[in-house]
Each structure stands twice: as C-alpha cells, then as structure tokens.
Simulated assay, not measured.
Amino acid sequence: MDEQVAKMIVDRLDRQESKIDQMASAITSLARVEERMANGATRMDALARSVEGIESRLHELEKMRWKVAGALVLAGVVSGSASALALQYLPHLIAYAGATA
C-alpha cells in the first residue's frame, strides 16, 4: 500500500509540475504580447505626431492656395481693366500715331 500511495503522490506531483510548466509558458506568451502592444502603442503615438505635422502643413498650403488664387483674380481684374482701357483709347492712339507720322 505504501507503493500505491507513493505512486499516487508522484503522479500528482508530475501533473502539478506539468501544469506549472504550462502556466510558465502562458505567462511568457503574455509577456511577449504585452511587449508587442507597448511597441505598437509607441509606434501609434509617433504616427499620430507625424499626421498632426502633415495636417498643419496642409492647412498652411491651403491658406497659401487661397492667397495665390486671390492674387490671380486681382491680377486678372487689373489686367482686364488695363486691357479695356487700352481698347477704349486704341483708336485715338492709332489716329494720333497716323497723324504724327
């Protein structure tokens, strides 16, 4: 009977050792997952900062675009006014040039 008790104790200890090994493996896996998550969070923070910088530059470019568009419209208006003025006085200029020639 002592042998049976000893065998039961040994079997029970083997099962416990096996379970402890499984738990150690699971804890190691969890630690790896946690490390990957921490690295992922760090990368996400860096990407967020990068996107914020790009958004800021884009906003500045959009403001510049509207300034350029306004300048082009103003140049067109001034040019159109000068052209209209020139066309209005062109016959007089031609007549004056012909009279002085």
Rank of each mutant, 00 (worst) to 15 (best):
N39Y: 03
L93P: 00
W66S: 14
S81Q: 05
P91V: 04
A24S: 15
A69F: 03
H59Q: 15
S56W: 00
A38D: 06
Y89N: 13
Q4E: 11
I27F: 10
A82R: 05
M1Q: 14
A97F: 03
E52L: 08
I94L: 13
A69N: 05
E35K: 09
Q16L: 11
R36Y: 04
K67N: 11
M1P: 09
M37K: 14
L85W: 14
R65K: 15
K63N: 15
A41D: 15
I94E: 09
G70M: 01
L87V: 04
Q4N: 12
S25L: 03
V51Y: 03
S56K: 14
R65P: 05
S29M: 06
M8A: 15
A71Q: 12
L85P: 02
A97M: 08
Q22S: 06
A101S: 13
M1K: 13
Q88L: 15
A6Q: 12
I27N: 10
A82H: 08
A97I: 03
A82I: 09
A99Y: 07
R57C: 05
A71V: 11
I9Q: 04
A82S: 07
L85D: 09
E55H: 07
Q22T: 02
R49Y: 05
I54Y: 05
L85K: 10
D14H: 05
S50K: 13
G80I: 00
V68G: 01
L85S: 15
L90K: 06
E55I: 01
L72C: 08
V33R: 06
A26M: 02
A84K: 10
D21A: 11
K19S: 10
L93Y: 04
R65F: 13
L58N: 15
T42F: 03
A46M: 08
Q16S: 10
L93W: 08
R36G: 05
L47H: 09
E34G: 09
E60G: 07
R32D: 13
S79K: 04
A41N: 14
S83W: 02
A101C: 09
W66T: 15
V77K: 01
S25Q: 11
I20W: 07
A31H: 06
R43I: 03
M64I: 07
I94G: 00
G76F: 03
V5F: 01
A24G: 03
L61D: 07
Q4I: 08
I9D: 00
I94W: 02
A86K: 07
A101R: 08
A48Q: 12
S81P: 01
M44D: 07
L74E: 06
D2L: 13
H92K: 12
L87A: 09
Y96A: 11
H92V: 10
A48V: 07
K63H: 14
S81D: 04
R43D: 15
L47N: 12
E3V: 08
